[in-house]
Design a binder for these strands. Structure first.
Lengths: 212, 212
DNA sequence: ACACATGGTAGACATTCGTATACATTGATG
DNA sequence: CATCAATGTATACGAATGTCTACCATGTGT
């Protein structure tokens, strides 16, 4: 809702709303949850009057949802275009994981806030983030079927795996951001994690359904 | 630190401190993070004067750490004694996961707060929770080696897996607590997840080291 | 030319918060 | 009995907060 039509706010758009979102990102990443920033502190950080907040958002959840929408769009689009540039399916997992970590490196605050709010206090925000995760899982499933990375695994199991990969990678990304010394290790472990899940799914499939 | 000697505070102990911890658990689970509860709201919820808080804790992080220590102790001890009652290693994974979920069902607030703070704003609290996870991972490794659930997997890989299992299970536990309709599904998926990791590790081991 | 919606500001209000100081009770120790 | 530490209470103060009302600037539509 409240999609801005192109003609209106052509000039004023450069100001308030975006600055509030960016300030909220910065504050939430290093201090607390989005809900507990407070409109005054937010206005202060954005160089705006506290009341200006209410011109754009009805409450903090509103802002958080806008923030998530941006993050979700950016991340998913980034991964889509990377996957598009992959012509030969060579080391898909490695490349994808690397890309996610790079993205996190470029948008650390967004990731920190995203994961934090995923387990945060606001049900609406949690739901939005779960939907984002679900979307990313969809992409993983599509990719895997398209590139035939795991042909032995049925689609249902694939989706199950994908839904688990995303939060686990997010968890690792936070470590990655916090402990730079562990970067290569975490990247390596994340790749191995995904590979293990695929291999394990194939192995279990072979065991429970039919001995190949 | 600040371990209470047996002779002192024999009577007064039943009051303040414990009630503050319990109230904080309740408030943090349904509202916000521990840090943002506020000493006044906490005192109100505990039926105590706001200042009483400072008789027991120097700041909110202090309380959070005490809370985590309790959770960590309870959870780990519960799992230890369950594992002790397991005589034949039949469906160890299934039993263990079930036990964790049952524990979460009996202590939902502790789990919610624990996971929330794991990605929260306080570095000290996050560190304490990571240490708890590390301890649980230790137990998993010990169990697996003892019961020879995955004899093909080297200890190093085992530890790597264990460190990933715990947060993933925690993630699933939160879903489990929030969406009762998905309970059996989530339990099933969690078991499969662990099984996949073990099977996958064994499979990768066979591939990268030597064709069996 | 005029009204008007939009984005931003200013000031004020009650409320809440953290914490400092001072005081009361109680149980143990000398 | 006197003392002392631990626990809890009462009061009070300055600072910060959410939000209300009113005012201002500007670009757009008629």
């Amino acid at each position: 809702m409240s999609r801005r039509k192109p003609q209106e706010a052509a000039v004023a758009e450069s100001g308030g709303r975006q600055r509030l979102i960016e300030a909220a990102l910065k504050l939430a990443a290093k201090s607390r949850s989005v809900q507990t920033i407070g409109v005054r502190a937010l206005g202060r950080a954005a160089g705006l009057n506290p009341n200006t907040f209410y011109r754009h958002f009805s409450c903090m959840d509103d802002l958080a949802l806008a923030l998530i929408e941006t993050l979700s769009h950016d991340l998913r689009q980034t991964l889509r275009q990377m996957r598009h540039s992959l012509r030969q399916p060579d080391a898909v997992i490695q490349r994808t994981v690397e890309y996610v970590f790079e993205f996190a490196d470029r948008n650390p605050e967004a990731f920190i806030v995203g994961v934090r709010e995923l387990y945060g206090a606001s049900p609406a925000v949690r739901a939005a983030l779960r939907q984002m995760i679900s979307g990313l899982a969809d992409d993983i499933v599509d990719d895997t079927r398209l590139l035939e990375t795991a042909p032995d695994v049925p689609e249902e199991t694939l989706r199950e795996i994908a839904e688990m990969i995303v939060p686990q990678i997010f968890h690792n990304v936070l470590d990655y951001l916090e402990r730079p010394s562990r970067r290569t290790l975490l990247l390596h472990q994340s790749v191995r994690f995904v590979a293990m899940l695929f291999a394990g799914a194939a192995a279990l499939e072979g065991k429970t359904v039919a001995r190949k």
